[in-house]
Design a protein around this nucleic acid. Structure first.
Lengths: 333, 333
DNA sequence: AGCAATCATGAAACCGCTTACTAATAATAT
DNA sequence: ATATTATTAGTAAGCGGTTTCATGATTGCT
C-alpha cells in the first residue's frame, strides 16, 4: 500500500558498502574510489533513492530552507521583491518558506518563532515597523536576517533598499519645480517608519529647500489600496492641493482614477507621482510618473547577502543601498 | 558565543521527569498528571524551550509543511489564489514552501521531487499543463496533491476551479448578443490545456450556438503580459475584429490600452471582456468587464481540501467547482 | 483488605542521515 | 623489504524528538 521509502541503509546493503560511503557519494565527498562511487550511484538509480531532507537537516543542522516574511503577497511591490528573492534562492538551492504577516505585529513575532522552530538557515524580512520587540525576536533566532525593501532606522539589521529620503525629495522637488505649492503627501500609516522617518522627511526637505511651509492638512494616511486612494480624491480637492506624492502604486492608481472620475484633469489640473514603479504605472491613463526602484534587484541582492551571512562570509557593508531614479510618464506635466 | 539550544532533554532533567513526559505535555497528551504538567510547563517557560520542528518531523513523519507550486508570483491571478491558500494553511498551522515554476515543465518536475525530499505533507499545484510525466511525478510523491485554479483534463487529480467552458461561453455569447460577429480570442499558449480544451471550447460553443463560423485568424496566442497585449492592438484591427475575449487581465489591460492608444474607442468601436476579475479590472479606463471568479476561495478551498486529504478524511468530490459570474464594467457596451 | 482496572511515568527503540574517529588498504619513501 | 604517509571505507555516536511497551502508582469495587 504505502510506497516503501528507501533509505540510505537500503542502498548501503544493496551496494555492499557502509551507509557512510553512500552518504559520501550523495554529498559529493571526494574520498571515494571512483569504482565504488559508480557502484553506489547505480544502486541509487536502480532503487530510486532520494535522501530525506528532514533527516539530513537534523543531522547536519542545515535545512537549506530560508524563511521569507511578506506583508502582502498580492501587493506588486512585495511580490516583485519576492521574485528576486526566489530566483536567487533557487540559484543557491534554497527553498523558501513564505509567510504572510499582514503587517500585523503579533503575527510577525509569531511567524519568526515559527520559522525559527523549523530551523530555517536564514530569514528575509519585509515590513516597515522594526520595533524593539521585533529586534529581540530577531536576536532570539539563530538564523541570520536581512531586511528587503524595508528600513531599520537604527541600522542594526542588514538591509537592502534605496535612499528613500533622497528619492522622495527629488520627486517632490520635481513637482515643486513646475510650480506646485500645495502638494499632498499620501501614504500608509505614519506608524511605519518608512513613512514617518523617511518619506515624510524627504517631503519636508523638498519643501524647505523651496521655502514652502509645511502644512499638516496636506498629509494623508490611509491603507495601501486602490479603494482608499479612490476615496481620497474629494479630500484632495478640499485642501486645494494641485499635486500629490503617493507612497504606493495601487494607492496612486486609486487617487488618479478618483480624481479623473471627479472631473479633474491629470496632469493639467493635478499632478500625481508615485513611488514603486510597478506594472500598475503603465496601465492607468494617464500613465503614472514614479520613483523607479530596482525591485527585482532589491530582492535578489537581499538573498545574495543572506547567503553570505549564512556562510559566515565577511560582509563589506551591512546595508546596501541600490540606485533609484525618476521616471516621467503622463501623470505629471 | 553560539546560543546554546535547549533540548527536550534539558527540560526533562530540569523538571526531573523523563523526556517522554515532556514530549507528552508539549503535544497536549492528556495522560499527564496536572501537577507534573505544570511543573514541566514552568521549566519550559523558564528555559525558553522551543521544540525543534525538524527533529519532530523526522520522528513523527509529519512536517506540518506543504508545498505550493506557482507559475508566477507576480501574476495577480495566482497571487490571489496564494492568499487564500496561505490564510487557510495558517489556520490549520501549516507552513508553506512556495516555489515558482515559471510554467517551465522541467522545473515543475524538479520542484516536485524537491518538495518530496523535504517531506512536505501535501502539495498544491497551480499550472495549466498536467502532462503524463507530471502525473508520474505526482504519483512518486507520498504527499497528496490538489490542483488550484487549474485543470486536469483527465480528472485524475483533485482539483478546485470553476466551469471554464461555461464561463467563456457565457462571456462570448454576451459579446455576440450585442451584435459582434468577429470576436477575437486572445490567450496564452494553446499548449496549455486550459486554453486549448476549455476556453477555446467555450468560445467555439458560443459561436456555434449563434451559428457563427469559426475563424482561425481570430485566435491569438501570446504570453500573459501587458506588453504582449499592447502589441496586439494592430493585429486585432487587421483582422477586423470588433471585440475580444481575453484570458488574462494584464494581457487584457494591454489590449485595451493598445487599442485606445491607437485611437480605437472602447467600448464603442471595440469591446473587451477579460477572465479573472483581478484588481486590474478596476484600474484601467474604461474599466474591464470580466468573468468573475472567487479567486481567494479557490485557493482557500484547495487548501481545505488538501487538509482533508492529508488526514485521510473521506472526500465527497475530488473535484470542486466553484461558481463564476459575469461582471459588466465599461469595456463592453 | 484484596484484586482488577486505570492512570501516570519511564526506558529504550527508532526516524534517516552526517560525521568524527578508527581501521584497513594502497602508495611512496627510505 | 620496511616504515611512513595517503586514501578509502567502516563503526558508531549523535541530531532532537515520538512512540511503543513495560512498570509502578492509584483508584475503584466487592
Amino acid at each position: 500500500m504505502d510506497k516503501q521509502t528507501v533509505t540510505i541503509y537500503d542502498v548501503a546493503r544493496e551496494a555492499a558498502v557502509s551507509m557512510a560511503t553512500v552518504s559520501r557519494v550523495v554529498n559529493g565527498n571526494p574520498n571515494v574510489k571512483p569504482a565504488t562511487r559508480q557502484k553506489v550511484l547505480d544502486v541509487i538509480d536502480q532503487l530510486d533513492y532520494r535522501p530525506n531532507a528532514v533527516a539530513r537537516g537534523l543531522a547536519s543542522k542545515k535545512t537549506t530552507t530560508i524563511g521569507v516574511i511578506i506583508p502582502d503577497l498580492t501587493n506588486s511591490y512585495f511580490s516583485e521583491l519576492a521574485r528576486g528573492i526566489d530566483d536567487v534562492a533557487m540559484m543557491y538551492k534554497y527553498n523558501i518558506i513564505l509567510t504572510s504577516s499582514d503587517e500585523n505585529h503579533d503575527k510577525e513575532m509569531q511567524v519568526i518563532d515559527n520559522l525559527s522552530a523549523k530551523q530555517v538557515d536564514g530569514i528575509i524580512f519585509m515590513g516597515n515597523q522594526i520595533t524593539d520587540e521585533l529586534r529581540t525576536a530577531f536576536d532570539r533566532t539563530h538564523a541570520p536576517i536581512v531586511l528587503a525593501g524595508s528600513v531599520d532606522p537604527k541600522h542594526q539589521v542588514p538591509t537592502v533598499n534605496i535612499d528613500y529620503v533622497a528619492a522622495v525629495t527629488e520627486a517632490v522637488s520635481n513637482l515643486i519645480n513646475r510650480g506646485n505649492k500645495r502638494i499632498a503627501f499620501v501614504t500608509g500609516s505614519m506608524d511605519e517608519s518608512i513613512n514617518r522617518d523617511y518619506r515624510l522627511k524627504g517631503y519636508k526637505q523638498a519643501l524647505s529647500e523651496a521655502r514652502i511651509g509645511f502644512d499638516d492638512g496636506l498629509v494623508f494616511q490611509t491603507d495601501y489600496s486602490y479603494k482608499a486612494g479612490y476615496k481620497l480624491a474629494k479630500a484632495l480637492q478640499d485642501v486645494k492641493a494641485t499635486a500629490a506624492f503617493v507612497g504606493d502604486d495601487e494607492l496612486a492608481a486609486g487617487v488618479l482614477n478618483g480624481l479623473t472620475d471627479a472631473g479633474i484633469r491629470v496632469p493639467e489640473d493635478f499632478e500625481v507621482i508615485t513611488s514603486n514603479d510597478t506594472r500598475f504605472t503603465e496601465m492607468t491613463r494617464p500613465r503614472m510618473s514614479s520613483i523607479t526602484q530596482p525591485l527585482y534587484d532589491i530582492g535578489a541582492v537581499s538573498m545574495r547577502l543572506l547567503t553570505k551571512l549564512m556562510n559566515n562570509e565577511s560582509i563589506n557593508e551591512q546595508t546596501v543601498v541600490l540606485p533609484y531614479g525618476l521616471k516621467k510618464r503622463t501623470s505629471t506635466k
